[in-house]
């Protein structure tokens, strides 16, 4: 699951060097330097890959890689 999430995120990073020290706590916008407009794309990609729906209020909680993994675990467990 994490590999699939990383693959999605990598589509939207311009500088590969941001991945050198990336951890689950890396922030999508501040650390991976992904434009905020891409968070919507990331949620759409995740919806498609994992067959889930990301609600409006869940979108704004996707700050770190771990937040995405937590959301997926929650959705898959529902």
């Amino acid at each position: 699951m994490k590999e699939q999430v990383i693959t999605v995120l990598k589509k939207y990073t311009f500088n590969p060097a941001v991945w050198d020290n990336a951890t689950n706590q890396s922030r999508i916008i501040d650390d991976l330097k992904i434009n905020s407009a891409r968070v919507v794309d990331i949620s759409l990609d995740i919806e498609e890959i994992f067959d889930i729906t990301v609600e409006d209020d869940e979108l704004e909680k996707l700050v770190t890689i771990q937040d995405i993994l937590n959301l997926l675990e929650k959705k898959k467990g529902d």
Binding site: Y12, N35, A37, R38, V40, D41, L44, D56, L59
Partner: peptide, 22 residues
């Protein structure tokens, strides 16, 4: 600032699902 010529942006703006989320 938003780049009009950025392919990522143009792809997003062509996607109805994106537009309705944004």
């Amino acid at each position: 600032i938003v780049a009009l010529d950025c392919p990522h942006n143009q792809k997003s703006w062509s996607n109805h699902a994106y537009l309705s989320k944004a």
